[in-house]
Design a protein around this nucleic acid. Structure first.
Length: 421
RNA sequence: GGAGAGGUGGCUGAGCGGUUGAAAGCGCUGGUCUCGAAAACCAGUGUGCCUUCGGGUACCCAGGGUUCGAAUCCCUGCCUCUCCGCCA
């Protein structure tokens, strides 16, 4: 949620930000609703002042045993006027809140302006693409031939867009998330195990609702959504609360399944486990003091990179263009992992700062050392997505004989095994 | 799922439909005292909105309703607790 005060006082700045994000919301309408809202508040509060005064007098008279019938009769009309204005105010409030809830966050000044990913800017890269003197099979082929990935079984159970790992494949997933969790915990993140079904209020808080309703699974009977990312459960942990500044910065990490309908993605990445409806992910979330958030973003990015460096997987860092940013994000770095079998870069982590956009939607605040109540900044980053990591390992660590070498750092988690196959 | 009880400030906990934004206690902050600390005493201590910056107004789980007037009465929803049932 954007600050209404900012919109009111600096509409041109907000308009520019929205334009850079290629958002077409009618900001003038919002400014007008806001003005109308304040006008009604001025009127109704004046009447309420009268009413409160009269009520006190009525109470006094009754106490003194005098008749207050005249005063009561006189206030009857005022009471009706107040009710009418309150109704009008409620409607305008609702209209204004709805309009505000559809406004995306504003991008930072240093985010490249552009309508899609072709404007994303290269930041840095790490590692060498593996040189292979044989044809590297894509992960779905090598996975099937090693007997560790059974996409047919997954389709039998759930239809297209699911994966079924077996044996050392399932073990590899477990090794990966244990490796990642251990690393993040050692670096100060609080390990959390969280609900994967949440209410619409929770999804509103992080900005998935109202805009992304079509991209999520919903349990109609109970009105709960399956989370598309653990960001939702972690970030909302103090929704509606005022926390003490000594709790900041708060670093959290959780391993969860994630659920995405991938509506509108038909035809893209139809093979293998790169784009699926259910995948697992280790997610990192930070809640921090506003003045610290730029450096917290950089260190969060480094935290995600550390996983790939440990696994010796080559990647590049991109900063997303304004048009490629998600609804709630003010600035996002993508980590793109090179996978030799499909011969392309896969988005494996998205590291974002939301400024106070999510905190406002969640109404999550903190009391600073001076006792002042303020909105914190929230950030998150994948650390990392397993359904992209496993294909990259199966492809980049593939050997000519059809086996796959297990990265050094995972071997302790794999019962000492050094290769699959 | 069935039966019952209940949701009040950071916490505990009062609160006949009418000076109740809300007693009291605890906690916290500042002060006095002290070489310093503890104790004691004194003072302060919620959030949002509107504002002509004097103030005004709203909020006692949430949303409706009754009333001149609601923390207090009524309805709906959510949540918590106890007992039973079911169950990993």
């Amino acid at each position: 949620m954007l600050d209404m005060r900012l919109i009111r006082e600096n509409p041109e700045l907000v308009k520019q930000g929205l334009a850079n994000k290629f958002d077409t919301s009618d900001l003038d309408k919002i400014v007008n609703l806001d003005e109308k809202r304040r006008e009604i508040i001025r009127q109704v509060e004046k009447l309420k002042g009268q009413r409160n005064k009269a009520s006190a007098e009525i109470a006094q008279k009754k106490k003194a045993g005098e008749s207050a019938d005249d005063a009561i009769a006189a206030m009857r009309q005022v009471g009706q006027d107040i009710a009418a204005l309150d109704n009008e105010l409620r409607e305008i409030d609702q209209e204004l809140q709805t309009a505000l809830s559809w406004l995306p966050n504003l991008p930072h000044d240093d985010v490249p302006v552009g309508k899609d990913e072709s404007s994303n800017r290269f930041v840095r890269e790490w590692g060498e693409k593996p040189q292979k003197d044989f044809e590297v099979l894509p992960h779905w082929e090598i996975g099937e031939s090693l007997g560790i990935l059974d996409l047919e079984a997954a389709a039998r159970l759930s239809g297209s867009g699911f994966y079924f790992l077996k044996g050392l494949g399932a073990r590899l997933e477990r090794a990966l998330y244990n490796y990642m969790l251990d690393m993040h915990i050692a670096d100060g993140f609080l390990e959390c195990s969280v609900p994967v079904m949440v209410t619409s209020e929770t999804l509103f808080g992080t900005g998935q609702l109202p805009k992304l309703a079509e991209d999520m699974y919903k349990t109609e009977r109970d009105d709960l959504y399956l989370i598309p990312t653990a960001e939702v459960s972690l970030t909302n942990v103090y929704r509606g609360e005022i926390i003490d500044h000594t709790m900041l910065p708060m670093y959290m990490v959780a391993y969860t399944p994630c659920f995405r309908r991938e509506a509108g993605a038909a035809g893209k990445d139809t093979r293998g486990m790169i784009r699926v409806h259910q995948f697992t992910k280790v997610e990192l979330v930070k809640i921090v003091r506003p003045e610290k958030s730029p450096e917290e973003l950089e260190s969060l990015l480094i935290q995600a990179e550390k996983v790939l460096q440990g696994l010796k997987l080559p990647y590049r860092v991109m900063v997303l263009a304004t048009g490629d940013l998600s609804f709630a994000s003010a600035k996002t770095y993508d980590l793109e992992l090179y996978a030799a079998g499909v011969d392309r870069y896969l988005e494996i982590s998205s590291v974002s700062t939301f400024d106070d956009f999510q905190a406002r939607r969640m109404n999550c605040r903190f009391r600073d050392a001076e006792g002042k109540v303020r909105f914190p900044h929230t950030l998150n980053g994948s650390g990392l997505a397993l359904a992209r990591l496993i294909p990259a390992i199966l492809e980049n660590y593939q050997n000519a004989d059809g086996s796959v070498t297990i990265p050094d750092v995972l071997r302790p988690y794999m019962g000492g095994a050094d290769k699959i196959g």
